[in-house]
Each structure stands twice: as structure tokens, then as C-alpha cells.
Design a protein around this nucleic acid. Structure first.
Lengths: 175, 175
DNA sequence: TATTGTTATACTCTATAACTATA
DNA sequence: TATAGTTATAGAGTATAACAATA
């Protein structure tokens, strides 16, 4: 029922112990900010032209990160299986967002890349997200921004120390 | 094609101007941390028992936030229309996660609430998310945590100053 | 008549299984 | 035989439109 997702480690640590000696207030505050930030991030695709479903947008972003990749690679990146991905590519191709071409080296492989229209869509999405984040940052004083960047850097390093992600470029899917 | 979502303001500001005078590095760094944090958050539903699709999980969370609400309210909360939500509730009810009962005050309304099993699922999800955030925080020194909490509080306030969300309890949908 | 929710229909998205083409 | 991708089929999730029940 649930969608497949890339496994990182052999066993899930999620069911593990409590938060150790970290005060609950801190955890709650971090959770709240994560939610707010996700809201901010996810709304950047509102009103994109042409309107693209969240799933298709995710595929466009994945392809954009790699430039060119084969269908199996895209499937893995999306946490889906090849057959689903093939169908998704059917729709993306019909929408004019991607191009499929067979590889010269191994003619079994299908190389997927963004069309010009796909590139424009991706650029616009990136632009909007940066603008949204920038708007919030602009409301903070330079000193606050400095503290934020330091704190977030530490937090990010701790995240990656705990769990080195496959491709960290996750998109906050739409709320 | 895209899913409907609650509109916050009459006009989208996303297409607006650049990030003002905020250095691009800061914006990029914030983006990167947001992505990492989203990954962390979204993986908390891995291996939940029973396995529930991201969509259904989102509905469970929404219902949990309100305790009881009518179908239209749930639809609005999910950014969907009543007909889709009605179908979703069919599946949630079949899965034993929710209960539908007609309201006494107005017999047109259908009140939706979590079943005991739904409550347990929601509690487990919350527990896992807190554990995941807590694990990362535990890797930071108390001083770092203090700086983080201050910085995130400022950032969160700036977010809400820019755009007061409807229900800020957004879930980072699965990566 | 207006509101609340459901049903009918059609499309996207996904998975499992069977298939084709290439290596 | 093994690998890369597609097609067949089925179910979840969604929207538009038509409908029933209640106010």
C-alpha cells in the first residue's frame, strides 16, 4: 500500500529509544519549526505554469539533479519501481517535460533528460523556493541570520552524522 | 491535475521579487538544511504497523489534531474536495483507523474521528518523529542546542510574520 | 433553495506479474 | 541466462458532475 522508498540501513532505527537527555521543549520547538519551514517550502509550486502534479514535479527535480540518467536510476531515485516509473515517464513525455532516448552504449537502456520546457519549469521552481526562503530571511536582522546559519549548519552536520542520506536533495512534498 | 490546496492570500507572492539583500549563500544553506530535516522527518513513518499510505497517514494526523470534525472540515484541512475525502474515508474506515457517525445537531453532517487503532497509530508516529529529532539533537552539545533553539525560534517567527499559516501542523510528506 | 455528503465516471499514480529486446 | 524497460491488470487517490438527504 505504501510507496517504496530507498532503505538506508539494514534495520530501521526509528523504533529505537527515546530522545536521550534532550529536553522535550527543544524537540517540540524543532518540530514546530520543521513544520513551518515545510509549509513555506512546499507552497513554492503553487501556480506553476503549466500545472504539474507533485509526483511529476519530483521526477523533474530528480532528473534535473542528474542531468541525464536511465529509467532504472530514476526509479531508484524516486523510490519507485521501473514499471511505475515507465508510466510516469509516459505522462511526463506527453506533457512535453522530458525526452526519452535509447543509450548508444547499451541499447537496452533508456536515457531520460529534461526538455527545454522541463528545464524552464525546474528553473522557475528553484527561483520561487529561493525567493520564499529569502523573503523570510529578509525579515531577520543580519545578526539573527548569522546565528541562524551557524545553528543550522550544526544541526545539518548532526543530521548527516546520524544518517548519511543517499541524495540529500529531498523535496518537501506538497502540504 | 495538481491537488487542490488551501489558498492563504488572494495573490501568490511566490512569483515576486528576489531575496532582497540576503546573501545567496545563506539562502542556499538554509535550503540544504531544510532538505535534510525533511528527510529526517519523513522517514519516521517507515515500518509503521500496520503500513498506511502517506495520504491516509496525513488524514489520520489531521483528524488527530481536531479530535472530531465533519467531512467537509477534513476535506478543507487536506486541501481536497469532499468527494475525494469521502472515498478516502471509505478506505480509512475499512482499514479500521477511523469511525464515521452522523451528527446529532445536523443530521446532514458526518463526524469523523479516530478509532482506538487510529489513535495508537498516531501516537506511534509522534513517538517516532520525536525520537528521530531527539537523536539528532542528542548529537549536539547543550550549547549548540541552545543556539539552535534560539535561531529556529527567530526563523519560525519570521516565517509566521510573513505568512500566518492556517494549521501549521504540516507533515513533511514522504521523500 | 442551500448545504452536506455520497455516487458515477475518468484520470493519475502505484505495484505485481508477464512480456520484449538486448547483452 | 541476466538485465533494462514495457505492457497488462488491479487498486489507491483525485477531480468534475450528478445525485440524495436534510435544513
Amino acid at each position: 500500500m505504501t510507496q517504496r522508498r530507498p532503505r538506508l540501513s539494514a534495520e530501521e532505527p526509528a523504533g529505537g529509544g527515546p530522545a536521550g537527555d534532550v529536553p522535550g521543549d527543544v524537540t517540540t520547538a524543532v518540530e514546530r519549526v520543521l513544520s513551518t519551514a515545510a509549509l513555506l517550502w512546499s507552497r513554492a509550486d503553487q501556480g506553476l505554469e503549466p500545472a504539474v502534479s507533485p509526483i511529476q514535479l519530483r521526477a523533474v527535480e530528480a532528473i534535473s539533479r542528474f542531468g541525464r540518467l536511465n529509467l532504472g536510476g530514476l526509479a531508484e531515485e524516486l523510490g519507485a519501481i521501473p514499471s511505475s516509473t515507465s508510466r510516469l515517464c509516459d505522462r511526463l513525455e506527453a506533457a512535453g517535460l522530458i525526452v526519452r532516448e535509447s543509450a548508444q552504449a547499451d541499447r537496452r537502456e533508456i536515457i531520460v533528460r529534461l526538455s527545454d520546457q522541463g528545464e524552464r519549469l525546474q528553473a522557475e521552481l528553484t527561483r520561487r523556493r529561493r525567493a520564499a526562503v529569502g523573503e523570510v530571511l529578509a525579515l531577520m536582522s543580519p545578526a539573527s541570520r548569522g546565528r541562524l546559519i551557524d545553528a543550522l549548519t550544526e544541526f545539518g552536520m548532526a543530521c548527516e552524522r546520524r544518517q548519511p542520506g543517499p541524495s540529500s536533495a529531498v523535496d518537501f512534498r506538497s502540504a
